[in-house]
Amino acid sequence: MDHRPQAWGRPRDDVYGAYDASYLNNSGPRTVTQSPVVTGTSVIAIKYKDGVVMAADNLASYGSLARFTDVKRLRTFLDTTVIGFGGDVSDMQFLDRHLKELATDESYEVEPTLDDEDDEESSSSKPGHLNAANLFKYLQKLMYQRRNSFDPLWNQILVAGLDSDSKPFLASVDLRGTSFTSPSLATGFGAALAQPIMRKYAGTEEDAAKLTREQAVEVVKECMKVLFYRDARSLDRYSIAVVNKDGIELKEDEQLEKQSWAFAERIKGYGTQTV
């Protein structure tokens, strides 16, 4: 009988045989994400005079396979902020759960002010709540922290809403924690295909401040169409969100309209064409 403490509470080896721990040891080093698996493509967003318009299609690709066609890649935070995710979908789902938790905690923080009779605050600037700029800063720190632990969240993220001065806010952060802001932003293929189009309308903050909501939505829809024409990992069903001081209007099952593939036959130089 083995009386040594390390044998306490364990099945006796002389009765049951030695414990087979082999299935517990996964040999080799601990591994982290080396490349994204199921991915979402571009997210695009543009500022206008009172807010921001953001869109992303509803596709999650498995390599070049259009695997899931109903994935919602835009999410809202506390009815004040829109977040768009490009890149790995499982990391997006992780962030989605994380942000949900953060939003719950934040909702409990709401302070009953001593004088609550004269609060005429709009829904998009709830006092004491994280605004888009605050949330973006948090995501930026989170992404950079994960990169520094060599286990990045494989996403590029756009955050849209209003900042602490109630001005439209739009910023981007990627898997390395790199962040920047601009009157219009696009991730993935959109950076090459949609951004030049959006810059025609909102090249500077001043230009963006002149855009109306209708114009901004129109530009974004046009960009989604171009992306569908030319990005092979895209879909014609998409989500579009408008965020301003009155809150968020999010439509998650939009269909691209007025497509014309007439240009397609003029494209040469690909595939098996011989001419």
Binding site: E109, G128, L130, Y138
Partner: peptide, 12 residues
Amino acid sequence: RLTYSRNMPIRS
């Protein structure tokens, strides 16, 4: 301030 770039809520 570093993680959220805002004043910490006094109640927290």
